[in-house]
């Protein structure tokens, strides 16, 4: 960290100073793109209870980036190639039928351990790479180039457009698969497509938060939003708001402190989740408590 990056008493001038650095502006641009994408895709991950698959697909970013560095190409290629590849493997091997995606946990675990093993192999092959392992796993926002941002933006737009197209049938198939099937919603095709979109999203998020902390943006904001409201529209918007806030504050905090970005984003997201839970308990205690007591007395 540069010596002059500590916080002074004037917050505005500090922020002004931070924005003067191209690297920080790029980091904010990349973070904003990634936050919006992660919040939207993550909302469906939480709703569909596919967090384990999401975790596995994100971990595939680690061997991907390690392989890319080992081969001397841009880490982006490694992230996208391995994350989408892992998603495609899970999609291809997951058996169709009752429960569908919910029963694939063994397969997901197998893919997860194999990707981690591959990651260690590439780290071992590339000697002297050990410093980079930390940022691959726990995130780094330095060195985001305008080219990276362009790739992030293009992929995010493509994924978000696809989500807008399949969103409603996907929601139907996620909430109520039996009826959706009877209505002719191609739920198996949709869940395979969603896995691939998830792979692309995980690859994007990995580049900011690191492979291990993808959940900070992919799961925590969505889980927080769904905790606060059960209205799909509102919770999707809230999820984006939380992801953006967490990313922006996380980047700022990481700039003004010696601690890594992944830690800050995760901590802020976790704080939001705790507060949302408190809010949920309070709302339930206040609103539904009386009704539940009445029901309990009436029934028993």
């Amino acid at each position: 960290m540069p010596a002059d990056s500590g916080l002074s008493w004037n917050l505005l001038s500090d922020i002004d100073q931070m924005w003067k650095l191209d690297s920080m502006v790029n980091a904010y641009r990349a973070g904003t793109i990634v936050a919006v994408l992660a919040a939207v895709v993550g909302w469906f991950v939480v709703l569909r209870r596919q967090t384990f698959v999401a975790h596995t697909v994100s971990l595939a970013g680690f061997p991907g980036a390690a392989a890319a560095v080992f081969l001397g190409v841009s880490a982006s290629w490694g992230y996208f190639g391995f994350c989408i590849g892992a998603a495609a493997v899970i999609a291809a091997l997951a058996r169709s039928g009752k429960g569908g995606m919910a029963e694939e946990s063994a397969l997901t675990g197998i893919v997860q351990s194999f990707t981690l093993a591959c990651g260690m192999l590439f780290v071992a092959l590339y000697k002297g790479f050990l410093n980079g392992v930390n940022s691959l796993l726990f995130g780094s926002f330095l060195g985001v180039t305008p080219g990276d941002i362009a790739v992030l933006a293009v992929v995010a737009v493509v994924v978000l457009l696809a989500m807008a197209l399949i969103g409603r049938p996907l929601l139907f198939a996620s909430v109520d698969p039996a009826v959706a099937d009877a209505r002719g919603v191609p739920s198996r095709t949709l869940s395979l497509l969603f896995l691939v979109l998830l792979g692309a999203t995980a690859a994007e998020v990995s580049q900011i938060t690191g492979s291990l902390l993808v959940f900070a943006l992919l799961v925590m904001p969505a889980a927080t939003a769904q905790r606060i409201t059960a209205r799909p529209g509102r919770s999707l918007v809230l999820s984006v708001v939380f992801a953006l806030a967490v990313t922006w504050f996380g980047l700022g905090a990481a700039y003004f402190s010696p601690y890594p970005i992944g830690f800050w984003i995760t901590t802020f997201a976790f704080g939001c989740y705790l507060l949302a839970n408190l809010y949920g308990f309070a709302a339930r205690w206040r609103g539904a408590g009386r009704r539940q007591v009445a029901e309990a007395l009436g029934v028993s």
């Binding site: 989500m163 409603r168 049938p169 929601l171 919603v185 799909p232 999707l236």
Partner: peptide
């Protein structure tokens, strides 16, 4: 209308 393509949000 859950089987229609398009924006995911009912309402």
């Amino acid at each position: 209308d859950g089987d229609r393509w398009g924006i995911p949000l009912p309402g």
